[in-house]
């Protein structure tokens, strides 16, 4: 599904250049769930955002379904429509009702008629138990509800893959569970997923593979058992001792 080759990303800042990603090679196969863990500021978000080109790689290659997407001439909107993204701060559209948040993109992009999109929205809202909020505005929702809606909004485009950037980090603790539950359900239905997360239990339960990112490199990757039960890299051991 996604192949990344020798990915570099340098940000130009007022204090000079900041090299965040220093040559990353990775692959995520169809249906696979990958969790990305690592210390804060290690470049996890940047790595994820390079997958749908919200950040433009400085060099290296990003391939999606057999097409290199970080080259001129690629219709990136077309690619992004197939890759949902869920953000830490939800980013729901505050001027639109819940239902309009969900139907906006499918209708604008002519994937569905308004009526089809409305039906699909209601069906998805039932799945996350929020159908009674269809006509509410985002400001009337709790954080956990907002994030479930944000997930539904992405799903409404029928993406082939979903990117999650710390989807529970901005939530009050009592709301984390309801969002992880929805994510598990999405995972169970076979969605290809890349999830940046600090929820180690979720990573262990749901991920097929885990990337440990630090210092601009994937320092270790492996199954949850390899990463959590038999970590090899000292930085990973140190990181796990702090978060577990």
């Amino acid at each position: 599904m996604i192949v990344i080759k020798n990915l570099h990303k340098t940000f130009k800042t007022d204090d000079g250049d900041l090299e965040v990603l220093k040559g990353i090679d990775a692959e995520i196969k169809d249906g696979e769930k990958v969790a990305v863990i690592g210390p804060s500021g290690s470049g996890k978000s940047t790595f994820l955002r390079c997958m749908n080109l919200l950040e433009t790689p400085t060099s290296g290659e990003v391939w999606f379904n057999g097409t290199q997407i970080n080259v001129p001439g690629v219709n990136i909107d077309e690619i992004r429509a197939q890759m949902g993204m869920v953000f830490q701060h939800f980013n729901l559209f505050p001027h639109l009702t819940v239902k309009a948040n969900i139907t906006l993109a499918p209708v604008l992009l002519k994937r569905m008629t308004q009526q089809q999109a409305d039906e699909r929205a209601i069906e998805l809202l039932k799945r996350v138990d929020l159908v009674e909020k269809a006509d509410a505005y985002p400001s009337q929702l709790s954080g956990g509800q907002k994030q479930r809606i944000a997930i539904v909004r992405s799903l409404a485009m029928n993406p082939k893959m979903m990117l999650f950037d710390e989807p529970t980090s901005a939530l009050d603790p009592e709301m984390i569970g309801e969002v992880l539950e929805v994510m598990k359900e999405v995972a169970d239905q076979g969605m290809t997923m890349a999830v940046v997360t600090h929820e180690m239990k979720f990573a262990r339960d749901v991920a097929d593979r885990i990337f440990f990112l630090d210092g601009g490199h994937i320092l270790e990757e492996g199954t949850p058992e390899q990463i959590f039960d038999a970590p090899k890299n000292p930085r990973l051991k140190d990181f796990l001792s702090k978060v577990l």
């Binding site: 919200l54 992004r80 890759m83 993204m85 559209f93 485009m157």
Partner: peptide, 8 residues
């Protein structure tokens, strides 16, 4: 970013 990530 949310709009662009949906393909708009």
């Amino acid at each position: 970013e949310a709009g662009r990530s949906l393909g708009l």
